Simulated scan of single mutants.
Amino acid sequence: MDYVYLAYLHLATVVPAFLIGTYLLLVKKGTPKHKSLGKIYMLSMLFTAMVSLFMPAQLGSLFFNHFGYIHLLSLLTLYAVPAGYFYIRKGNVNGHKRSMIVLYCGGLIVAGTFAVMPGRLLHSWLVG
C-alpha cells in the first residue's frame, strides 16, 4: 500500500488543527466561538491521530513491525481529547485546560518536531 496518501490526509487534518489550536490558546475561553472551534479542533485531532496509526514508522525501533515511538503521541492524543471533553462537560475547567495543553504540546508540537526530523517523509518534502 502506498502510505503517501495517508501522509497527505494526515497533513490535511493536522495543519488546520495546529492553526485552530494555536488560535484557541490565544483567545478568550468559554465563548461560543471558542466552543465551536474547540469541537472542530478536537475532531480534527482525533481523526489525524487515527490516520497516523495506519502510517508505518519509518525510523527507529518497530513494534509489531509497524508502530514506532512516535505512535505513542497518537495514543496520547486519543486519550487527551476525550479526557478534555469530559472534564469540561463536568465543569472541571482546570482538568480541561491541562488536557488541552498536553494535547497541543504532545500531539502537535512534539509530534510535529519529530515529523520534520531528517529521515522522515515530511523532512524530505520540505528540504528535498
Score class of each variant (00 low, 15 high):
Gly84His: 02
Leu9Thr: 11
Met42Gly: 15
Pro56His: 01
Phe86Val: 06
Ile70His: 07
Leu122His: 07
Leu122Thr: 12
Val102Leu: 12
Gly95Asn: 09
Gln58Val: 14
Ser52Cys: 07
Val14Ser: 10
Gly91Asp: 06
Lys28His: 09
Leu59Trp: 07
Leu6Asn: 11
Leu46Asn: 03
Val27Gly: 01
Arg120Met: 12
Ala12Arg: 09
Tyr8His: 13
Phe63Ala: 14
Ala7Gln: 12
Phe18Glu: 00
Met1Gly: 15
Thr77His: 00
Lys33Ile: 14
His96Asn: 06
Leu53Ala: 05
His71Ile: 02
Thr13Cys: 14
His71Glu: 01
Leu75Ala: 08
Lys39Val: 05
Leu43Asp: 01
Pro56Ile: 04
Ala57Leu: 04
Leu43Thr: 13
Trp125Ile: 10
Met55Gln: 10
Ile109Phe: 13
Val27His: 03
Gly95Arg: 10
Cys105Leu: 15
Arg120Ile: 02
Ser99Gly: 13
Val93Arg: 07
Met55Arg: 14
His123Phe: 15
Gly38Leu: 09
Gly21Gln: 07
Phe86Tyr: 15
Ala7Phe: 13
Ile88Lys: 12
Thr22Ala: 15
Ser44Arg: 03
Leu76Cys: 05
Tyr5Met: 11
Gly128Asp: 02
Gly95Phe: 04
Asn65Gln: 10
Ser52Gly: 14
Ser74Tyr: 00
Leu76Asp: 02
Leu11Met: 14
Gly95Ile: 02
Leu59Phe: 12
Leu108His: 04
Phe64Gly: 00
Pro118Cys: 09
Thr113Tyr: 15
Pro32Lys: 15
Ala7Val: 13
Thr113Asp: 05
Phe63Lys: 08
Leu72Pro: 04
Leu9Tyr: 12
Ala111Trp: 00
Leu37Cys: 11
Gly21Phe: 01
His10Ile: 00
Tyr3Asn: 10
Tyr3Asp: 08
Val127Glu: 10
Tyr69Ile: 13
Leu62Asn: 06
Val27Cys: 13
Gly21Glu: 06
Pro82Trp: 07
His123Trp: 14
Ser36Thr: 14
Gly60Lys: 10
Leu26Asn: 07
